[in-house]
Design a binder for these strands. Structure first.
Lengths: 125, 125
DNA sequence: ATAGAATTTCGATAGATTTCGAAGTAAGGG
DNA sequence: CCCTTACTTCGAAATCTATCGAAATTCTAT
């Protein structure tokens, strides 16, 4: 077995995507394809209690509040996070179902492989 | 297990992303955050033999050859595909390592979680 | 060589995106 | 009530992106 045996694996590379699916997925991907929004998502998800208030998030960036608010809105419109006002502060939390959708798209289909065709190491990120 | 049992899970939501990691990942995500490029990736990966020639790809879209060429270049620059000229035609194939990187970012960590670590109500600061 | 087909590069344009400052809304405290 | 703090909406500027047509490049066949 040579390197040519590597077949790609992720669902996206298994079956040809329809145009409408592609448009829908691209919209979701655009929402995370920004350094600020990636960090926001990451900070919200990893925050104690699973939610973070906007004030915490804003302080972590060199950006103005309106800009952070804009990015949060993009994430929310994409269904990746949800926000709730409690008293003075607004708290955001991750909606895992949508995050999982992204994972499913690109995740290698490891399951059926009885032996590894070739060593492709999964980076721990 | 109810819906409330879903905890977020993906590596991106586990640990706060550094700015430089975020920039790097956003670059990769931008490359796939486009309907045309998603379909190109999908078509290349699902093509017989694991590779597709540009002519096949161009015919599947209502776009001009320069535009398809541009999108292929973006995918190639991101390390998602690689192309090789053989005779008259150029063939592209997927580089699974890079695709897997995306999968790893958002894939749910389903395996280790037997119970929820905490059930916190957000303490009123 | 010359011609022709496949693909990429170049230059231009229309549209989208990021960001800001200013103004608006909502909640809480004197 | 008014004032302050937290956040969002609005409108505008700068930058980036997708797309095209025209021209350059690379290879094959005559």
């Amino acid at each position: 077995m040579t390197a040519a045996t590597i077949q790609c694996c992720a669902p996206i590379a298994r079956e040809s995507l329809s145009e409408s699916d592609a448009v829908e997925l691209a919209t979701l991907l655009k929402a995370v394809a920004d350094p600020v929004r990636l960090r926001l998502l990451s900070m919200i998800g990893s925050h104690v209690g699973g939610e973070a208030c906007v004030c915490d998030l804003t302080d972590a960036f060199d950006l103005t509040a309106p800009t952070i608010s804009h990015h949060l809105k993009v994430l929310r419109s994409a269904g990746l996070i949800d926000g709730e006002r409690r008293g003075t502060w607004v708290y955001y939390r991750i909606l895992p179902e949508t995050v999982n959708k992204l994972g499913a798209l690109f995740a290698p289909l490891t399951e059926p492989a009885p032996h590894r065709p070739v060593e492709l190491e999964l980076p721990p990120v």
